[in-house]
Write a protein that binds this DNA or RNA. Structure first.
Length: 862
RNA sequence: GCCCGCGUGGCGGAACUGGUAUACGCGACGGACUUAAAAUCCGUUGGCCUAACGGCCAUGGGAGUUCAAGUCUCCCCGCGGGCACCA
């Protein structure tokens, strides 16, 4: 009589066992090749969610699989523990952010441990711990000395609700990503990392990241946004300073003769200067800043500007004066913050010119058009063509015109060819408490002074108040007011803290030497970096991954590491989705609050009232379409949850959560449990030779079943190598079904059956480790499944004696015939033509041609 | 608007470099067990025609290349993602 499958019991047992023996401690002194598997570390928000379960299951499959393949695996876990939610919690519930964070970590650590992940918990780190951020402060100072960190006045996105500065990427449709408040522009003194110094390098190195998804490389490439163009100087006429000139950037210097105006960003220094003496310009600039990018597309779509009264001289047209506008569509952060407008060949410029009655001069004529008759209507012409109305450029194509005009610009001193990037420097200052303090002091005499290394870390003070708006560090005078480390005069600490993206830009390196006194130890990073397989959400495709790539290079420059790229392999997984439910009042309902009414609709569990079923979207608390992993693990066990996460959906796509799906996974494990436990404990001699020891083919056994076993090994192995977890699961289930259908009368078949189940356990072990370990033990195996090498398919079992080959007549399948595997063309042809169904399909017509693809298909053409 | 990606049964999805479309799972239907239900087990399950043998039609739509197209090419439709005044 076999015991019932009790997931909870066996999972607890095996987890305790693994922990006790330190089974997953990464070996720093091993002859085996290293493999570093890392999943993006979680923010300790309070509870793990299904996205974590999916992410960490995939990473664990890779870790356990690579271990079985003979690698020395590093698989660590930590906490992205600084950030705004902790401060919000502090304000709402009057708990200290640190207390809240560490309490959450304790909960989530327990939850993660219940998943049975093969993690080296000795290496756990939390970015909010002084033992972590002390090193970050040290590196900040190194970056500062290396010129990679600097301070500048800059326009920032100010979130008036969170009272903080937002990165561009944290502004979504003009609103703060967290608060949703309309973002304002403000001028503040900010710390920046000089990521633009590596713009070209970061772009070019993307080609070498062959184990990254193309999609991510493309997105990063677009983000960096390299363009070739020219800077052009327009002399300003009639200004106070006659020597003043306006510098613009253009990708189309060839259209210079079509210029009809210049335009400045409202935040351009010249605009700011003009605004001081001109209330209309000041008003306009303010209006632009207030609008930001957040207003309706229709409103912002309109290109508006204001004439400054200034005039710019054309570099190459004597006496030509262009009006200078301040315009809402010119960005200060791109190029030089000023443009020349060529309405004929740029759609925005055209709209602007039409609005303000500016000339539209075509200078590029489309191929085949008559230069004299060519006119611009409602659409600018942006394609290649022949230059017209352009003096020394006339007759050239666009490419040569660009080269020619660039030469002339350089020889006359009116400009130069240049390369421009969309990428901007990384602003890291945050006006928040719960972050890594920026380790500098502002001294009235010495200016910015780095805190000396031996005074690090600059610890966050514990006694802070969150009742006042703004940054609590600002109002904490005892912490803030310190003597200057250089001269001893009264000075102030920098009260900004770092963007949490800084924390996550090097944590993967810290895992290599989590307790060392230096940020990273050379021997440790030499052993482990780069990360061989990184796994996480595609939402981090640009920022986190780009910042980390920059950070590794900055660390290299400061002598910490010798490599450039932190992540050799990257996999971006899809989200976990669920249907959404709303009651008649429009309130969101949790899945457990609704049930089917039996007629295909959903109703409330309590009141039976009809429920509107919405489309399936990523699980989120706000829509209440979440399923709690802890509940699922409690009910079905971690193995079932893990198996479901890997089944059905390809890992890069979104996964639809379904109750029936998880039940299906549970059913399978229960059935497997029964199959194995019904066998009874095998004795060593009753079991016969294991597959790993017997490589000579035993023809007394069930050869077809053995072949299925080896084909499954082969298939699952290649699936796991390629991250095709769903296919691997399908194959293992298929083999299990196949074994279940076996006629086991003969002793040899019984033996094959047992071997088959052992293989199922070994193949499934990375996915559902607890049940496999338990059943492995049940089969009488004394050695740990964890220490078993990955099974290898044997070629002699993969080869078939005969093949089933479909026969087509004119491309339609009419029959299948059995042929020996090594059949020749003639034999295949005659066998095919001898087939009755084939003859019927030919229907007496003349056979024109017979195509035989050995072992694949036969096509008879009539 | 620009740049990517994806469209296969009732559903999630298989199908390696063009070679048996629908593996595996879910659901549904039928049956067994049960007083009954749940659970479990067995069977059927792309659509249409046929009493049956069998045939026809199906991978978003339309063309093309090929002995052969889910797979390659072109056009169109739909969905999703990224960037969005980038000069």
């Amino acid at each position: 009589m076999s015991e019932r499958y009790n997931a909870k019991e066996i999972e607890a047992k095996w987890q305790a066992g693994w922990e006790a023996e330190g089974a997953f401690h990464a070996d720093t002194d091993s002859p085996r090749p290293k493999y570093y598997v890392l999943e993006m570390f979680p923010y300790p928000s309070g509870n793990i969610h299904m996205g974590h379960v999916r992410n960490y299951t995939m990473g664990d499959v890779v870790a356990r699989y690579k271990r079985a393949r003979g690698f020395n695996v590093l698989h660590p876990m930590g906490w992205d523990a600084f950030g705004l939610p902790a401060e919000n919690a502090a304000m709402e519930r009057r708990v200290h952010p640190g207390e809240w964070t560490y309490a959450n970590i304790a909960i989530m650590r327990r939850q993660l441990k219940s998943m049975g992940l093969s993690l080296d918990w000795r290496r756990e780190i939390a970015t909010c711990h002084p033992g972590y951020y002390v090193h970050q402060q040290r590196m900040f100072i190194d970056f500062l000395k290396a010129g990679l960190a600097y301070r500048k006045e800059s326009w920032v996105n100010w979130d008036p609700v969170d009272n903080t500065v937002l990165a561009n990427e944290q502004v979504i449709e003009g609103k703060g990503w967290r608060s949703g408040a309309v973002v304002e522009k403000r001028l503040l003194s900010q710390w920046f990392f000089r990521i633009t110094a590596y713009a070209d390098e970061l772009l070019r190195a993307l080609d070498g990241l062959t184990r990254w998804p193309d999609k991510v490389r493309l997105m990063q490439g677009n983000w960096i946004g390299r363009s070739t163009g020219a800077r052009i100087f327009f002399p300003l006429l009639g200004g106070a300073d006659a020597a003043q000139r306006l510098e613009v950037y253009t990708t189309r210097p060839d259209t210079l003769f079509g210029a009809s105006f210049c335009a400045l960003s409202p935040n351009h220094p010249l605009s700011v200067e003009l605004a001081r003496g001109n209330p209309a310009i000041a008003d306009f600039a303010e209006q632009c800043n207030r609008l930001g990018t957040g207003e309706e597309a229709i409103e912002t779509a309109e290109k508006i500007g204001i004439d400054t009264g200034l005039r710019a001289g054309h570099p190459f047209i004597e006496g030509c004066e262009l009006p200078v506008y301040v315009a809402n569509f010119v960005l200060m952060d791109y190029g030089t913050g000023a443009i020349f407008g060529c309405p004929a060949h740029d759609q925005r410029d055209l709209e602007f010119a039409r609005k303000y009655g500016l000339p539209v001069i075509p200078v590029v004529c489309p191929p085949g058009s008559d230069a004299g008759a060519f006119e611009i209507g409602a659409e600018a012409f942006t394609d290649d063509g022949t230059l017209i109305n352009s003096d020394f450029l006339d007759g050239l194509d666009v490419q040569s015109a660009i080269a020619t005009v660039n030469e002339r610009l350089e020889s006359t001193g009116y400009g130069e060819a240049t390369i421009n990037y969309r990428l901007r420097d990384w602003g890291i200052s945050r006006q928040r408490y719960w972050g890594c303090p920026i380790p500098v002091v502002h001294c009235p005499d010495c200016g910015v002074v780095a805190v000396p290394y031996d005074q690090l870390p600059v610890r966050l003070p514990d006694d802070v108040a969150f009742d006042a708006p703004g940054n609590p560090l600002d109002s904490h005078t005892e912490w803030r007011d310190v003597p200057c480390p250089a001269c001893g005069a009264a000075a102030r600490r920098d009260t900004d803290t770092m963007d949490t993206f800084v924390d996550s830009s090097w944590y993967y390196a810290r895992f290599c030497s989590p307790r060392r006194d230096e940020p990273v130890a050379a021997d440790d990073v030499e052993q482990w970096l780069p990360v061989d397989q990184y796994i996480g959400g595609v939402e981090h495709a640009v920022l986190h991954l780009l910042y980390s790539r920059f950070f590794m290079r900055a660390m290299k420059r400061c002598g910490y590491v010798t490599i450039d790229e932190p992540f050799a392999g990257l996999f971006t997984q899809g989200m976990v989705c669920h249907e959404t439910y709303r009651n008649r009042a429009g309130n969101w309902l949790y899945p457990e609050q609704v049930k089917p009414d039996g007629k295909g609709a959903m109703v409330g569990v309590k009141d039976g009232a009809p429920v509107q079923v919405g489309r399936s979207v990523s699980m989120s608390k706000s829509k209440r379409n979440t399923v709690d992993p802890e509940q699922i693990i409690e009910t079905y066990g971690a193995d079932t949850a893990r198996l479901f996460m890997l089944s059905d959906s390809p890992p890069e796509r979104d996964l639809e959560w379904s109750d029936t799906g998880i039940k299906g996974a549970w059913r399978y494990l229960t059935a497997l449990w029964r199959m194995v436990t019904e066998l009874g404990e095998g004795s060593e001699d009753g079991r016969g030779p294991g597959l790993d020891s017997a490589s000579t083919r035993d023809d007394t056994a069930d050869v077809a079943a053995q072949r299925a076993i080896h084909q499954t090994i082969e298939g699952v192995t290649s699936d796991l190598e390629k991250f095709h977890f769903n296919r691997a699961v399908a194959r293992i289930r298929q083999l299990t079904n196949r074994l279940g259908e076996m006629d086991r009368q003969a002793a040899a078949s019984e033996q094959t059956y047992r071997q088959g189940l052992e293989i199922v356990l070994r193949l499934l072990a990375p996915m559902t480790p607890h049940i496999c370990a338990e059943l492995w033990r049940h089969l009488g195996r004394e050695n740990s499944l964890l220490d078993m090498d990955w099974p290898l398919a044997e070629a002699e079992y993969l080869a078939e004696d005969s093949v089933t080959v479909p026969v087509q007549v004119n491309g339609k399948k009419r029959a299948t015939i059995e042929l020996p595997s090594d059949h020749d063309e003639a034999g295949a042809e005659s066998a095919a033509l001898a087939n009755e169904a084939v003859q019927r399909a030919i229907a007496g017509k003349a056979v024109r041609k017979v195509i035989v693809v050995q072992g694949k298909i036969i096509n008879v053409v009539v």
